[in-house]
C-alpha cells in the first residue's frame, strides 16, 4: 500500500518535471521569452532590467534552472494588465471556479446516479428511455449553446433567474463563497447545471451500465433470497457496487470540469479563472496564460494522484492486492 503511494508520488513528480520542461521549451525556446514575459510597452531600460531579473542573458541550462526555482517559489511572472503577480491573480479567481466546479459535480452525482440507476432498472420504460436520450443530447450538444439557451429561456423569456454574474460572497470556513444566500443560489444555478451537463450524462451512462450489470449478478439474487427488502438491495447492494467506478471516473474528470469552466464562465460572466484566461488571451497577457497553464497541469496531476490513492482505499479488492502502477 505505502509502496504503491510512494511509487505513484514519484511518477507524479516526474510528470510535473516533464511538463515544466515542455512549458519552458514553449516559452523560452519556441517563443521569444522577451516577448512572452516582458511587457511590450516597457521602455528599453525596463526591458534590460527584466532580462537580467529573469536571467535571460544566461546560458540555456541556467535559464531553465532559474525558471524552475522561480516556479517552485511560486513566481510565475507578473501580469502586464493588472501589474500583479500572475499566480496571485489566478489564485484570487480560483474560489469562484472551484465553487462552480463543485456545484456541478454535486449536481452530476446527486442527479446522475439516481437517474442512471432508474434507467438501468427500467430500461424499457418511457422514463428510462427519455433519460438515455437526454444523456445522448448532453454528450453531443455544445455546452456554450446550451448555456445560451438557458439564459434565453430562464432569464430573457421567463425572467426568473439572473442571466449571469456571481452574487455577493460571504465567509464560510475561511473561504469566500456565494451559495449561502438565496441570491447566490439563483446566480449559480444556471452555470452549475450548464457545466454539469456533460458529466451528468457521463454519470447517467456509467450508473445505468453499472446497474444493468450488477442487477443480474448472483449476489443480488442471493440478497433477495435472504429476504432483504428491495429498497436495501438497490440502495446498498447495487449502489455500493456502482459507486466506486462512478466516483473514480468523476474524480478523474474533475480537472476537465475546471477546464470546461472556461466556456461556462464566459457564457454566464462568472468571475473565475476561466474567464480570466480568456480575457488574458484576448489581451495577450502572457504571464497569466503561462501561470494558468502551470496551475492547471499541476491540478490535473494532483487530482490523478489523489483519485488513484482513494480508489485503492475504497475498493477492498484493490486494496489488498499489490497494485501494478
Amino acid at each position: 500500500m505505502s509502496v504503491f503511494i510512494i511509487r505513484r508520488l514519484l511518477q507524479s513528480v516526474v510528470v510535473i518535471w516533464v511538463m515544466s520542461l515542455l512549458v519552458f521549451g514553449g516559452v523560452y525556446l519556441i517563443g521569444d521569452p522577451i516577448d512572452m514575459l516582458i511587457n511590450p510597452e516597457a521602455d528599453q531600460e525596463d526591458i534590460d532590467a527584466a532580462i537580467r531579473a529573469l536571467g535571460l542573458d544566461k546560458p540555456i541550462h541556467e535559464q531553465y534552472w532559474f525558471f524552475l526555482i522561480n516556479a517552485l517559489k511560486g513566481d510565475l511572472g507578473s501580469s502586464f494588465i493588472f501589474n500583479e503577480p500572475a499566480l496571485q491573480l489566478i489564485l484570487a479567481r480560483m474560489p469562484a471556479t472551484m465553487e462552480l466546479a463543485f456545484a456541478s459535480l454535486f449536481i452530476s452525482i446527486f442527479f446522475g446516479i439516481p437517474l442512471g440507476m432508474w434507467a438501468g432498472l427500467h430500461p424499457e420504460s418511457i422514463a428510462g428511455r427519455s433519460i438515455m436520450t437526454g444523456s445522448i443530447l448532453g454528450f453531443s450538444l455544445p455546452s456554450f449553446w446550451v448555456g445560451i439557451m438557458f439564459i434565453m429561456f430562464f432569464a430573457v423569456i421567463l425572467g426568473v433567474l439572473p442571466s449571469g454574474g456571481r452574487a455577493e460572497t460571504t465567509e464560510f470556513l475561511g473561504m469566500q463563497v456565494s451559495f449561502l444566500s438565496w441570491d447566490g443560489l439563483s446566480h449559480i444555478l444556471l452555470p452549475a447545471v450548464n457545466l454539469a451537463l456533460f458529466k451528468l450524462s457521463l454519470v447517467i451512462r456509467l450508473s445505468r451500465a453499472g446497474t444493468q450489470e450488477v442487477i443480474h449478478q448472483d449476489y443480488i439474487k442471493f440478497a433477495r433470497a435472504k429476504g432483504v427488502s428491495e429498497k436495501r438491495v438497490i440502495l446498498v447492494h447495487v449502489l455500493k457496487n456502482i459507486l466506486i467506478p462512478v466516483v473514480t471516473i468523476l474524480g478523474l474528470e474533475f480537472g476537465s470540469v475546471i477546464a470546461f469552466a472556461v466556456v461556462t464562465e464566459t457564457v454566464f460572466a462568472w468571475p473565475g479563472m476561466g474567464k480570466l484566461i480568456i480575457e488574458s488571451i484576448d489581451q495577450l497577457d502572457r504571464p497569466v496564460i503561462v501561470a494558468y497553464l502551470m496551475i492547471i497541469v499541476f491540478m490535473f496531476i494532483v487530482i490523478n494522484l489523489v483519485v488513484d490513492i482513494l480508489y485503492s482505499v475504497l475498493d477492498p479488492r484493490v486494496r489488498l492486492q499489490d497494485v501494478k502502477a
Partner: peptide, 18 residues
C-alpha cells in the same frame, strides 16, 4: 496517453493562445 489525459479544450486553448 499524456495528451489524452488533458481535455481537448485546454490543449486547443493553449495552442491558440500562442
Amino acid at each position: 496517453d499524456l495528451q489524452l489525459s488533458f481535455p481537448a479544450i485546454l490543449i486547443a486553448l493553449v495552442l491558440l493562445a500562442t
